[in-house]
Amino acid sequence: MKKFIFIALALLIGVEVAILTLRFGPSRDSDIELTEVSGTEQTSAPRSSSETVASAVVAPPPNLPPATKGVIRSEFFGVEPLALDLRAPVFKKREDGRILKSDVAEQLNSLNDPEREPVEDIQLLTSAVSSYRKIFRENPVAGENREVVEALTGNNPYQMMFIDPSHPAINSSNELMDRWKVPYRFHPVSRDQMEIRSAGVDRQFGTPDDVMIEEPVQFGNFENFEENGQ
């Protein structure tokens, strides 16, 4: 009996030590530990996919948000972005050192193209937000058009751009405008559903000519979804 108790105690202590070591112990691979973006990190030839992310981020130019010390949103609930191979063809490093999600940015060059249907603009923006979501596991945390633009132009954990900040659809207030020069309305329904609406030809929201895509309900209080007014 004593032997069993001894073994059980030894196992328990072993598990506790292992967890504490994992949590607080020195890292043997510190180059892939949580890293603050220093703002002065320079590019070097990547050796691994995890290092690629760290090395690809460089100091932003003066007209972009400074790479300040960020905050883990929550110790337990922080949504971590995907680890990416930024050498993949869909990523391009700009002259200013920032990473451009080139496939999305190139698609967005057609935004507000008069040769295309207005609803295609919404599809393009929806696709851009979706691309952001696939990498960062959630929509941009944004209640305003400006905040969505900030997130898509690099104010995100990888400082990754999905749209060129000099895109003609972005106005001086840093808002994305539709082809009728009215800012789009971004409506965050959930972490993975963002409704995007254009006011349409009459430039008034809430009228029949508004342009938007009805997205299916994904989760949440779906039983009361219509009643929830979302």
Binding site: I19, L22, V57, P65, G70, A83, V141, N155, P157
Partner: peptide, 26 residues
């Protein structure tokens, strides 16, 4: 908007450590 300019890389070690602690907490 809060500035989220933080590169958050998560290693397997870090993930295991956090998961274990989170599990213990819950």
């Amino acid at each position: 908007m809060r500035n989220p300019n933080k590169k958050i890389e998560m290693s397997r070690r870090g993930f295991l450590a956090r998961s274990a602690c989170a599990s213990m907490g819950v």
